[in-house]
Amino acid sequence: MLTLSRISRSYGDTVALDGVDFVVPDDTYMSLLGASGSGKTTLLRLIAGFEEPDHGEISIHQTRIDGQAPHLRDIGFVFQNFALFPHLSVADNVAFGLRYRANKALNNDTEIKDRTQEALVLVGLDGFGHRGVSAISGGQRQRVALARTLVCEPRIVLLDEPLGALDANLRARMCDELRAIRQRLGVSFLHVTGSETEALTMGDEVAVLANGRITQSDTPDTLFSQPRTAEAARHMNAWNTFDGTLCDGMSVKGEIAVRFDQMDVSAQGRAPKDHLRVHAQYLTGEFNGPTALSFFRAADGTLLQIIDHLSQPRLPDLIEGQHYDLHFPSNALRQFHGAV
């Protein structure tokens, strides 16, 4: 179990992390979702030991690891750009840790070869060992980076946007494979990403990093359907968050959220009486294939989105610039207590 308590890190005046409390349980695929610049990578670098926190503690199984040199921490790190050793072959890249680590380095060439081979088979690169790392594709490099980390059997594997450099097709396939590999090894993965789809698909649990803190850490479906903070809701990219005073029909205070798919549109004054209403101007629509997004601007300038599924169209014909009533049942609304 990896535990971070009250971790803070600043660069000059910029606060990257501001008291992060975070737990990655054993044998878990944990996704860490955050916008770019939210401090995700910093968090991983602190855990791996490339940087030290200004305050707070990092521990694995109750043993403190902050302050330890990175090569003694026994933590795997898969870099976004893979960071393969350009002068070594695929097999030598994978064998690097076994051969040269400061603790428990292997001298037995056969054993190194066997374990390298096993790792290559695990990631589906059997027979690529002799190749140079510049002679393989992006997806294969990703696998080499993964094999190189996994072969050392680290206590936890940190993945820094591991799918970011792959094309969409490959990304989908690697998603499944990463989950399968993790399950076979039983080691915890901490997967950092800026994509909510990736985080929700991959994670047994998803944590949202915003404003330098973990704002919520939950199972994907709980996080998606019941975000506890406005920040968490915004990161799902499926919730309109707006000020409660925009609503007609009931007095709501503070910031509230309604999911894109739970809002309806009707002409002004035609909304069902028991629904909450928000007046807004239709801006434009965006056709995405199976779904269509409609964008509205509320009275205070907030942008609102409504999603329509092609199979069940429920929106009337909308005219750009016209004003409409957006409405939703009161049970669709999520209220957040206090400021985030």
């Binding site: 960071a83 050793f85 690097f96």
Partner: peptide, 25 residues
């Protein structure tokens, strides 16, 4: 690439080893 050196460190190599096996070559 600095991340290459960090990767070698992460795989357990001390600075001396990283120098001999990565930086020098």
């Amino acid at each position: 690439d600095i991340s290459v050196i960090e990767a070698a460190r992460d795989l357990g190599a001390s600075f001396g080893t990283v120098f001999r096996r990565i930086i020098l070559p």
